[in-house]
């Protein structure tokens, strides 16, 4: 990879800064660890099983499709493992094994590899896998139903379902601090807000994701939720509630800034993030799904190629 012979006359670049796909994947996984460990701590071995199974299946599918298409084996770059990890973070701890297997198959094979592998996918693979599962087996993602047997010392009510069915009267027991510390039911790695924020900060500081997308996503959620709340505070929850529940934080820091399905220029990034945020709250408040992050980001992935047409003028171009 790196040419270590010292005395060779060549063109620039002369030095490689060491960044690679595997570095990106492993650092993203490290950033996701606090939230995942919290989930495993809360839900016990069952959650650990789902996480391990998801990562293993993702790598397995990647290896299989590499062999079938006779391309170089790409499981070493860690992207498949990352897809598996992020996918497990969205799932409830009680997911059966076949759900994990199907989801990771869709994510890795249909989401990524049939579009030519890493870097070619127009949609976020994790979200495609998850969206198809939601459309096909909606019952397994009704968090009130599937997590009913857990007693973790706080109300096992999925906050977004509560606000959807009961209005703000149903969510009075949730405090913002409690939501941040993971005292809510939900996916394995998506409830511990503080951990996700720390992970996101780490990724932004290291330059692996762009702050524009995450920030504009959160701003979109905040402003839209605030407008709904001001309009009718009995029916629609306040902005902080929407920021720290469901998949908002994992979406802002891990799903929306996915490399190949998000824009590259400044203004398109703002449009992309804010659009996803606005759509998220629209789906939560007036749509038919309880949480809107998954479909909102997928919809913005679709608009991404058009957004990217807004680009700076080429140097020296007249008119």
């Amino acid at each position: 990879m790196l040419n270590h012979n010292k005395l060779i006359v060549s063109h620039a670049p002369f030095w490689h800064n060491g960044s690679s796909i595997s570095t990106r994947s492993y650092h993203t996984m490290i950033a996701a660890l606090p939230a995942v460990l919290m989930g495993i701590f809360q839900y016990g071995p069952r959650a650990l099983g789902v996480v391990s199974l998801s990562i293993s299946f993702a790598i397995l599918w990647e290896l299989a499709i590499n062999k079938i298409t006779r391309r170089t084996v790409s499981i070493g770059d860690g992207n498949a493992a990352l897809i598996g990890l992020l996918f497990a973070m969205l799932l409830p701890a009680t997911s059966p094994w076949w759900l994990v297997a199907t989801g990771t198959f869709v994510a890795v094979v249909i989401g990524k590899h049939i579009y030519g592998g890493i870097g070619g996918n127009p949609f976020n693979p994790v979200l495609i896998g998850f969206a198809i599962l939601i459309a096909a087996w909606r019952d397994f993602f009704d968090f009130n139903e599937v997590l009913v047997n857990y007693d973790l010392g706080f109300a096992m009510v999925y906050p977004l379902a509560a606000v959807k069915h009961l209005g703000t009267a149903g969510i009075e027991s949730f405090s913002t601090a409690g939501l941040l510390l993971g005292q809510q039911s939900g996916g394995i790695g998506s409830t511990f807000g503080l951990g996700l924020i720390f992970g996101g900060m780490y990724l932004i500081a290291r330059g692996f994701i762009r702050w524009e997308i995450s920030l504009s996503f959160l701003a979109g959620v905040f402003i839209t939720a605030l407008l709904f709340n001001l309009n009718n505070s009995n029916l629609y929850a306040g902005p902080f509630f929407h920021l720290f529940t469901g998949y908002t934080l994992i979406g802002a820091f891990f799903l929306a800034p996915e490399d190949s399905s998000s824009p590259v220029n400044f203004i398109p990034m703002l449009i992309y993030g804010a659009g996803a945020g606005v759509m998220t709250v629209l789906i939560r408040n007036i749509g038919s799904y309880v949480d809107g992050v998954v479909f909102a980001i997928l919809l913005m992935n679709l608009i991404n190629p058009l957004c990217d047409k807004i680009r700076p003028k080429a140097l020296g171009k007249v008119g």
Binding site: I110, I114, P122, F123, I128, A131, I132, A135, M279, L282, I283, I286, G287, S288, Y289, G292, F295, A296, L298, L299, N301, L302
Partner: peptide, 17 residues
């Protein structure tokens, strides 16, 4: 065709609005 299917899936976002 595969992408058209995924497009249709993304329009699930507007369901029930």
């Amino acid at each position: 065709l595969v992408t058209a299917g995924i497009l249709s899936l993304t329009f699930y976002a507007f369901k029930g609005m």
